[in-house]
Write a protein that binds this DNA or RNA. Structure first.
Lengths: 258, 258
DNA sequence: GGTGGCATTGCAGCATGTGCAACTTCCATT
DNA sequence: AATGGAAGTTGCACATGCTGCAATGCCACC
């Protein structure tokens, strides 16, 4: 809507691909060099862009700081985290937390069995929305018309032979997920990887996030993974309860009983 | 320099403090509501801003994705180089910068000694991973299981009598290095050459690179080399700071509001 | 010392962003 | 229901401030 800002913001993803000099930026934006220069200067003043010795521009540190703050301000994540850690300790597999934002599903937290807690490694990347268990859970909760609209609008990449092929199949799957209250992704994204997911709900019962357990075939079969469903659902419910304020305070490790 | 972009970008740190509605944003920017609305719309289209159910604005997902890509393209070497040169000017010895890549430690930069001695190192070549100071620093930062796995997998060539003999000794050494935050190689690779190394850390505190000072016995004793440790560590810390964006780079610094 | 590539500057013209005021929507209150 | 207020949204006339051009500066490489 605002041409100038629109152009300026377009520079950022462009630079994310790698450093670029003024002329390259100008050409990609299809504007005059002087225009690009002014935009870059403004971005630079705000620290979104950094200029290296060879005068090429690259993304600046301010982005990290902002992304960091943004992820920290997600309160679901904060509440969920200890539960996810506990779940990971119980089952040993990778645990994800995801939310829906503007028709994209993104991971906002992850606990990996091998790399405990660490930085936000893959966090922030959009997930394969047509196949991921967490995506199904989040979309299944949308009101019918919107769900249909989204399903219609999506692409259905064939990651594997078991990927969701089209909108019709996806809507059917969403209906199933909605009814049963949990979801799976059995080799739909990567042939050898299975997931089970469960929804986190807010006070009003709407799905605000979804968490999942992922594990490769070679470690546990899909069937064995499903045995973890009760544990997963208890975790998701515990997060829901705490998020809605319906339960006892955080205290220490909210571990669950077998 | 560009008013519109300047205003738009100012919105982001503002939202980083927490969600805000249109009027609050307009007031903070000191512009009319309609102006703020248009800026926010543009930010929204680019995914930098997200609108929650209560219509308040929040930082959006695109920030995560960008920060992610940016960190991948960050080149430590470019940032580190001037620091390494400065260090070399101060101490006169050979200075190295190394990173870990696919279980190999690679020198990615080197400033040669001003003394007439040659060192057998080449940029891009793998280093003697079981003895080099930089290798110890990089491996010491790995999560425990992986560290162990790597140590187990390595060969332990006896370059000299003081080379690391086996996995057990190596792991013990790594534990020491991890604890003290610096490392040495005292004649472990070449009988007459000693090194001290210090880690370069990224925003998340993980070791992303390591730099070292190397010098032959005939020029300085091991003990004298250790006297350079404080200088080395200051250098490494300066690189870390700049790499993490915690400090302003030499010349082109973002503007300061005075 | 010339040449080419790229960044930078100053400027005139007008596209584009701006603020205003009217309109809508929603919700709380009577 | 009706009323009032608070917040978001829209259309528009004005002029600010953005745009592209052309000229200049800067460097590195022949």
């Amino acid at each position: 809507m605002s041409q100038t800002v629109d152009r300026a913001l377009s520079i950022l993803p462009l630079l994310a691909e790698g450093p670029a000099n003024l002329e390259q930026v100008a050409r990609r934006l299809d504007v005059h060099k002087s225009t690009a220069l002014r935009l870059l200067r403004t971005l630079h003043e705000h620290g979104f862009v950094y200029r290296q010795q060879d005068q090429r521009y690259r993304l600046g540190a301010r982005l990290f700081a902002l992304a960091q703050q943004a992820v920290e301000s997600l309160d679901v994540r904060e509440i969920a985290h200890p539960h996810l850690v506990a779940l990971n300790e119980r089952c040993g597999h990778t645990v994800h937390l995801a939310v829906l934002e503007d028709n994209e599903v993104l991971y906002i937290d992850k606990v990996d069995s091998r790399y405990p807690v660490r930085m936000y490694s893959r966090i922030g990347k959009p997930v394969a929305i047509t196949v991921a268990a967490v995506a199904k859970l989040l979309l299944a909760d949308l009101p019918e018309p919107e769900r249909r609209a989204v399903a219609e609008r999506l692409d259905y990449p064939s990651y594997t032979a078991r990927s969701t092929p089209n909108a019709a199949a996806f809507l059917k799957e969403l209906a199933t997920v909605r009814a049963q209250g949990w979801a799976t992704d059995l080799g739909g994204h990567e042939e050898s990887i299975n997931c089970v997911g469960a929804p986190v709900r807010g006070v009003d019962g709407r799905v605000v996030a979804a968490c999942s357990i992922s594990a490769p075939n070679v470690v546990v079969s899909a069937e064995e993974l499903l045995h973890l469903l009760p544990l997963l659902r208890r975790t998701a419910d515990a997060i829901s309860a705490e998020y809605s304020g319906n339960t006892t305070p955080p205290m220490n490790s909210p571990k669950e009983k077998a």
